[in-house]
């Protein structure tokens, strides 16, 4: 039980450090004033570069409307059923083509990374969206910790499987654990985040505590929750929704308004929080991150590689 450290990861990384977002409230304007006055730490300036200035959804919206099938298939199931999940202690097994494979205690990981706030657009494959103020660190920092070997081309992720705390696992149809994957260049992109918090608070369990992936230019299901395993490999890894219905869910699953889901259009989306009369708005290519990530897919047919 070496990884079962008594120390909580929240003890190692002072909450004030990794959760400090108060200085960022008020958006870009305050940010500009803040950095001019030299009040903000360095990471906060970096956060501004990648964050959208759109108004974030409320904490309640983000934490009560979730897809997390390990806790049930209804949108309200995760908040109702996830609270029993033990997220501390937590460790992540990093293996495959890395120099330093092993069980990494989350506390140790968090001691070595810099947490920043990233306000990202989040687009679900079901054609709804949110704006989420995550706290987290770039996935690259974790991969650097393990030392990616030169032959590695993909990163595979797995979610925790703990039937006694995850009532949704009993349902058949999905082959657990939930699996996701990225191409290595996608994984190393500075937008790709490992989130540990939300709104400056600990990540709610229904949102994938204590550690989840956030890839803002891909459909939400790529952003795998409650990660316990990260594997570097030279082969494209199997991914859960693709295993279930490959015609509907591709490995890439980049947000693309021009490629419909077979059962619904992806041209528009509805942002959660607009009430009964919310208007649909056009979905943006790569969820609005085209400038940052389009070059990753130069020369690729995005209709074939959906």
């Amino acid at each position: 039980m070496a990884y079962r450290s008594k120390l909580k990861y929240s003890d190692v990384t002072p909450k004030a450090d990794f959760l400090n977002r108060r200085q960022l409230m008020g958006g870009a304007g305050a940010l500009a004033i803040g950095s001019a006055a030299g009040v903000l730490p360095k990471w906060a300036e970096a956060a501004g570069k990648y964050s959208t200035d759109a108004t974030p959804n409320t904490f309640e919206e983000i934490s009560t409307y979730n897809n997390f099938y390990e806790f049930g298939t209804g949108k309200g199931d995760p908040v109702a059923n996830a609270q029993r999940l033990t997220t501390d202690p937590w460790s992540v097994q990093i293996d495959g083509m890395v120099d330093r494979p092993g069980n990494y205690d989350l506390a140790d990981i968090l001691a070595k990374v810099s947490i920043e706030e990233r306000i990202y657009r989040f687009r679900c494959v079901e054609a709804w969206s949110m704006v989420v103020p995550w706290n987290g660190f770039e996935l690259k920092q974790l991969l650097d910790m393990a030392g990616v070997q030169s032959g590695a081309k993909y990163v595979a992720f797995e979610t925790l499987v703990r039937p006694e705390e995850m009532p949704g696992l009993r349902r058949s149809g999905i082959e657990w654990p939930y699996r996701e994957g990225l191409r290595l260049d996608e994984a190393l992109h500075p937008l790709t985040l490992m989130a540990t918090g939300l709104y400056g608070k600990e990540l709610p369990k229904q949102n994938g505590a204590p550690l989840r992936l956030v890839v803002p230019w891909k459909y939400g299901f790529k952003s795998i929750k409650s990660i316990v395993r990260v594997t570097l490999t030279d082969k494209m890894p199997p991914t859960t929704w693709n295993m279930l219905q490959s015609r509907e869910y591709g490995f890439y699953s980049n947000v693309n308004p021009n490629v419909s889901h077979p059962r619904w259009s992806q041209a528009t989306e509805r942002q959660i929080g607009g009430g009964l009369f919310a208007k649909r708005k056009p979905t943006l290519m790569f969820n609005g991150y085209e400038k940052e990530v389009a070059s990753l897919y130069d020369g690729m047919d995005l209709k074939a590689n959906y």
Binding site: E60, E61, T64, Y65, G76, W128, R270, I272, G275, L276
Partner: peptide, 18 residues
């Protein structure tokens, strides 16, 4: 149900719920 949808009783995404 319409009343619930208008007053938040159907959650944060009332259109789909309704």
């Amino acid at each position: 149900f319409l009343y619930l949808g208008l007053t938040g009783g159907l959650g944060v995404e009332p259109i789909n719920a309704l």
